[in-house]
Design a protein around this nucleic acid. Structure first.
Lengths: 198, 198
DNA sequence: CTTGCCCGTTCTCCATTTGTTCTCTAATGT
DNA sequence: ACATTAGAGAACAAATGGAGAACGGGCAAG
């Protein structure tokens, strides 16, 4: 077996017995079901199960659900936030997942950002669009990137390395290219897909 | 396991328990049924469920209905061809299907076209993009449509009805609006989604 | 055509829920 | 005796989720 303690196995069994459309139970609900009186106690076990990759929080960041690699037929990626030029990525108010066809993804781990603003309209990326971002920390010249400047401000731009400087080009004549010493800029990811709904 | 929150699961259960022939309940109706007092509160949950592909608006664009998980297990649409301005839709030489998330689809039957050319770049639709087209034979002013002119030449444009004439607007200053008597123009569909791969 | 109503959407504010960490204690094993 | 495991319970903070307000689009009625 997996070397689970008795209580850990009980937690997994409890989750397995739930219907798939039932909500992810909170720690309180799991406690009540298993006869525990303290979420703190439960949490120790949950932490071990999370470390083992067997459970994770529900879609809203709360509660507990099984990690079942077969149980996610929906081909979704997490929506991590909204991105506008020069501001921190604004976390969305609720954990969301978006169905993204595999054809729009890169080979690595990906996530989705929602675009705020018009700085990339000449690239056909409009306010409100979703962009699929592949986790990468390097980019080639000309690639569209999510770049973090001074560990703080994220922006969606076209990347260019010019000697020891990084040039971040908007795709909108109203905005000037931004130049930074390369060590102030971190590439957080590269755009590999884009979607829009009308 | 979907990892739904308690309220999200309640919403799904409520929709599931309705007769299939009942109208899609408005947000107010769902609120009343679930004991909520604010559509804003409900809307947060609804948005998450929409993003997860589990619910969508009703037929009139309002209310809430379940997405039918059995209707298209493959979640793909046919790619019918390539569309450029003023030419017949160029059939592709091989039957293709493209995975299109339900969030990008309309309520009716849809298909996908690949875009040729730059006539819609100011709308963020670039050469090589895919557009999701919902079968419709009428359009409202301002909607992006696939229009067939003289039963022969298809084009992707913004639709405007001007008296007895149809005006088809490109989204590129290099192209003039095209005017036709309305009886020479057939609407083949309305654009409801767009995707791009980098 | 105008107006009013329905309804979806977005936003702010705030109370409560909930996850997380920690200490203490009891039971068990070495 | 000491170490380990596991449970209770307290404290804290994050953030979820609810209410309610405002706005605007669409549709039906006049």
């Amino acid at each position: 077996m997996l070397g689970l303690s008795r209580r850990q196995a009980e937690i997994l069994a409890f989750l397995r017995e739930r219907e798939p459309t039932e909500h992810a139970p909170t720690l309180d609900e799991v406690c009540e079901a298993l006869g525990l009186r303290s979420r703190g106690s439960l949490h120790k076990h949950v932490r071990a199960l999370q470390a083992a990759g067997l459970v994770r929080p529900g879609a809203n960041g709360r509660g507990l659900q099984l990690c079942d690699p077969d149980a996610d037929p929906e081909d979704t990626l997490p929506v991590l936030g909204r991105i506008a030029a020069g501001q921190p990525i604004e976390a969305i108010d609720q954990q969301q997942h978006l169905a993204v066809p595999s054809i729009l993804r890169g080979r690595g781990q990906s996530y989705v950002l929602r675009v705020d603003g018009d700085s990339m309209i000449d690239e056909g990326i409009l306010d409100g669009d979703w962009v699929v971002v592949e986790h990468r920390d390097t980019a080639r010249n000309g690639e569209l990137v999510v770049a973090l400047v001074d560990d703080e401000n994220a922006t969606l731009k076209r990347f260019q390395l010019d000697g020891a400087e990084v040039v971040l080009h908007a795709a909108n004549a109203a905005y000037e290219p931004q130049r930074y010493p390369a060590d102030r800029v971190q590439i957080q990811g590269v755009i590999v897909g884009q979607m829009r709904r009308y």
